[in-house]
Amino acid sequence: MSSALLKVENLKKYFPIKGGVFNKTVGYVKAVEQVDFEVNKKETFSLVGESGCGKSTTGRTILRLYEPTEGSVLFNGQNILDYDKEQMRKMRKNLQMVFQNPYNSLNPRMKIAKLLSEPIYTHEAYSKKEVDEKVNNMLEKVGLSVKYKERYAHQFSGGQRQRISIARALITNPSLVVADEPVSALDVSIQSQIINLLMKLQDELELTYIFISHDLNVVKHISTNVGVMYLGKIVEKAETEELFSNPCHPYTKALLSAVPSLKPNKKKDRIILSGDVPSPANPPDGCHFHLRCKYAMEKCKHEVPINKEVSKGHTVACHLI
């Protein structure tokens, strides 16, 4: 679609492994290998996968918190990877991030008023009064009382801190927010509050989200499109409903069936994967998933599967298709 706000093409991020006497590069951890996707305005694209599959690295690389090894990130048609430092600094007010752990992403020495006004001072020129007003508005939007402004981060509970993190991300009026596991450090009853808040703010402020999570139920709830990652690659990508009703990749199927169901009587046929996720420093040849896949064929051991479109907008990287 032409209205894509963000288009990620062929994104790669390799981390060098140093070793030996001269600290030479002896290999690479291929954290992100060829990731392509696009997000339309006001939509939510979710990246889902197990730990170590590269979903957080992808999120950070898009914002250039890590310098990508290769690829392009088109934001409103402009490749932000070509930007120099100053251009990027100006760009950052449009691209914000909410981190996973609200316990260590807020500066313990700053009062909430300072935490929230700092992004405004960095990016815009406003008078003190205007800034104050903005902070008050934002606090109200995320459901916190204005009187909390003079408190420090440690005086809040996890859920409240995550609200502060969200407020800090949204105060510069960004169009794209990367939310990296924003609810996984929270208790169950607080999780749903934060999810509701994120959805409400998205409608109000016309935000676009990249939502990173390992919790499939949450992903199903919040996103318009989903990409399933395995060892640095998106193995399946589709609209949320399509993906959950018609998963095609064996890994997606296993992932979906591994989610514990809430119906105690229903004993479903669970696909139990054997083994663990291989190390991204030394990924298997061919299809990365073939060691754990029960449909693995001879071909899978040698040949890397390419993305094939099974229906409109639904792509799968598997030799079975």
């Binding site: 169950v188 009853s189 749903s192 949450v218 709830h221 409903e241």
Partner: peptide, 24 residues
């Protein structure tokens, strides 16, 4: 009731989730 309700309403696309107000 609240806990079960908030968890089981997850996954219905973009419907507002049932929440228990307040914090522990």
């Amino acid at each position: 009731l609240g806990l079960v309700k908030s968890v089981s309403s997850l996954g219905q696309k973009r419907k507002e989730l049932y929440t228990i107000p307040g914090v522990v």
